[in-house]
Write a protein that binds this DNA or RNA. Structure first.
Length: 586
RNA sequence: GGGCGCGUGGCUCAGUGGAUAGAGCAUCAGGUUCCGGUCCUGAGGGUCGGGGGUUCGAAUCCCUCCGCGCUCGCCA
């Protein structure tokens, strides 16, 4: 099914040619949602932009265009307003038909992408044996949502986590494991190291204090890279334990499954990167290191800045690994679009490796490598979020606190309303609300800006929060329970009647999902979807306030039930694309 | 010092060329509590950091200044 906007755009393109000649074929009619509802539903600003070349007033241009515009199946007669805007109001009969079609459509009227692309979304890449912290929240939540949206639109999506599972810190972890938990290397039983971060701290402490340990650690790195079996086994154990610990957090957050393809995966491909850059004539040896000198980057002395591909000691940097990943994703994965939702502080890094990838001829014009940067999570003091004692906030602690606070709110409400609920219900609602609140807050901010973290605000039941949206859904389920309505059996022959203002406003909004997802597909800004869902909830609440459903007479009753059902479906789908699940009661 | 980003009502934020700049929170005033009021209606409140420019039209593009953040060769 075509989005309304697309149909209108097509009609405008035809009218432009009909009115002003073939020169205007393919000119964008600048068709956008009306800036104010009083101007209608859509407006075209084309007359204001082409009047100069036509040598006449924009109003005249608009009027000529309208004469050739045939939109009578969709809209009321178009009106020229102000300096030359063309305003369009959708016909009620058209809206009614569209609502009915969406109701019967499993995709509720959302079209799939015309050009599906093989897409890779880069997932958070925590360092093995370190605990996940707030810094991993945004890449997880935003990456998951982007992947879900693109997948729903028909793109083939690969989710890949580039975990830090290689490099110098591993020496100390391996040696510490070998010495403190020798039994781990002899048994296939699951080993309980307790708190992994404690394990890391112990290792780090020994590394800092004990010269012998440091030497052993260095040796372990050499052995690891040489493929020594015993060392490799210890390394694998550390990685496995770590992944298992991460999985608990990912599960709690509801992050969709992904492929773990850590830095170690590219180890054998690194020499190939050096060779390829050498062959491309980009590699320069400077102060013993093999570098590519960058265009547009200078050091403090004003000289070109090098990107170090191979260190003077023969080792590799993360830029090299990332370049290897770029090649692999192109050559083996055959990716057409690669998206890196990574913090804005790494903008330079990505600009640099993409530049090298392009200059080496790997990244061609038909593929897209996109760094989708995001801002920081700030504390109330407007500084990077820390605990009261100034430490990094563990992601687990943050989520647990959100759940605990959601639980307190729920208990208070139950008491106030004199409700009795099972422990199971309370635990499930607290978790759903707490986690959703954290995720929704993160997603509802413009990805590129910093935002201030506040439990009170995100758990607020009013305003642009997850609980407000979830409540709108719960209200609809309440109607279904109370009226013993099975929404699935409303029937394809149900007549849709949009008479009240709030019904029309709700219906129009329901039909805009496709457009909104199109924006997110292009801009990778999930906050647009959040905004849409929030406005949908508001419009539903206004409708709910004004229009009785169950007590209405037929055929209005069934028509309103369809509106309720479609709203619920839209909320459920929209939230699921944000990685948020709805609940039936709360 | 160079590069990148940000600066919008008391607070948190939308809005990247189009009509009087929007929302939520908070404040104040009202409604309703009948399908779950965790709701709805209304009001006040902004020289869109300052200045200059491009344009028929600028929060949005360009220049410049101020403030804040990130970043600048062998960590990731």
């Amino acid at each position: 099914m075509n989005a309304t906007l697309e149909k209108l755009k097509h009609k405008f393109e035809q009218a432009l040619v009909a009115a002003f000649g073939a020169d205007y074929a393919g000119v964008d009619p600048i068709l956008v949602p009306a800036s104010n509802p009083k101007f209608g539903d859509y407006q075209s600003n084309i007359a204001l932009s082409i009047n100069k070349q036509l040598g006449q007033s924009p109003r005249t241009t608009a009027e000529q265009l309208v004469k050739h515009l045939n939109v009578s199946d969709l809209c009321e007669p178009p009106a020229v307003a102000g300096p030359g805007f063309i305003n369009l109001i959708l016909k009620t009969s058209y809206l009614e038909a569209q609502i009915k079609a969406a109701q019967a459509d499993p995709r509720i009227g959302v079209a799939t992408a015309k050009n599906p692309k093989r897409t890779i979304v880069d997932y958070p890449s925590p360092n093995i044996a370190k605990e996940m912290h707030v810094g991993h929240l945004r890449p997880a939540v935003i990456g998951d949502s982007i992947a879900r949206i693109l997948e729903f639109l028909g793109h083939e999506v690969l989710r890949i986590s580039h975990v830090g599972d290689w490099g110098t810190p591993f020496g100390m972890l391996i040696v510490h494991l070998q010495q403190a938990y020798p039994e781990a290397l002899r048994t296939t039983e699951t080993l309980d190291l307790g708190d992994l971060s404690t394990f890391y701290r112990q290792a780090k402490k020994r590394f800092d204090e004990d010269e012998n340990f440091r030497e052993a650690a260095r040796l372990a790195v050499v052995k690891l890279q040489a493929g020594d079996e015993e060392t490799l086994l210890a390394w694998k154990i550390v990685c496995a334990l770590s992944s298992r610990a991460y999985q608990v957090i990912y599960d709690l957050l509801g992050i969709a499954p992904f492929i773990e393809r850590g830095e170690s995966f590219y180890n054998l491909l690194l020499p190939g990167v050096v060779q390829a850059l050498e062959a491309a004539g980009l590699l320069v040896e400077d102060q013993g290191a093999k570098c590519v000198f960058l265009e547009g980057f200078t050091n403090k002395e004003g000289n070109p800045l090098p990107l170090i591909i191979q260190k003077s000691d023969g080792g590799y940097n993360y830029a090299t690994t990332d370049l290897a990943a770029i090649r692999y994703r192109l050559q083996v994965d055959k990716a057409q679009r690669v998206i890196y939702p990574v913090g804005a502080e790494q903008t330079n890094h990505f600009t640099q490796i993409f530049q090298v990838g392009r200059r080496a001829g790997w990244i061609t014009d038909d593929v897209e490598f996109i760094h989708a940067p995001f801002g920081l999570v700030l504390g109330e003091d407007s500084k990077k979020l820390k605990t009261r004692t100034g430490e990094t906030v563990r992601l687990r602690d943050l989520l647990d606190e959100a759940i605990a606070r959601a639980r307190d709110d729920l208990e208070a409400r139950l008491q106030e309303e004199g409700r009795q609920e099972t422990e199971e219900f309370k635990a499930a609602v607290a978790q759903a609300v707490g986690i959703s609140a954290v995720k929704y807050t993160d997603l509802s901010q413009n990805r590129t800006s910093n935002y201030t973290f506040s439990f009170d605000k995100m758990l607020n039941l009013q305003g642009n929060t997850a609980p407000y949206l979830m409540y709108a859904y719960v209200r609809i389920q309440g109607i279904s329970r109370k009226g013993q309505i099975n929404f699935a059996q409303l029937g394809a022959d149900a007549k849709i009647l949009l008479t009240e203002e709030t019904e029309l406003a709700l219906a129009k909004h329901l039909l805009q999902l496709s457009e909104v997802l199109g924006y997110v597909e292009a801009d990778l800004l999930p906050n647009r979807l959040c905004q849409y869902l929030f406005e949908l909830s508001q419009k539903f609440n206004q409708f709910y306030d004004q229009c009785p459903v169950l007590s209405a007479a037929e055929p209005i009753r069934t028509s309103r039930l369809v509106l309720c059902d479609l709203t619920a479906k839209t909320l459920k789908l929209g939230l699921s694309l944000l990685g948020i699940s709805v609940i039936e009661r709360m």
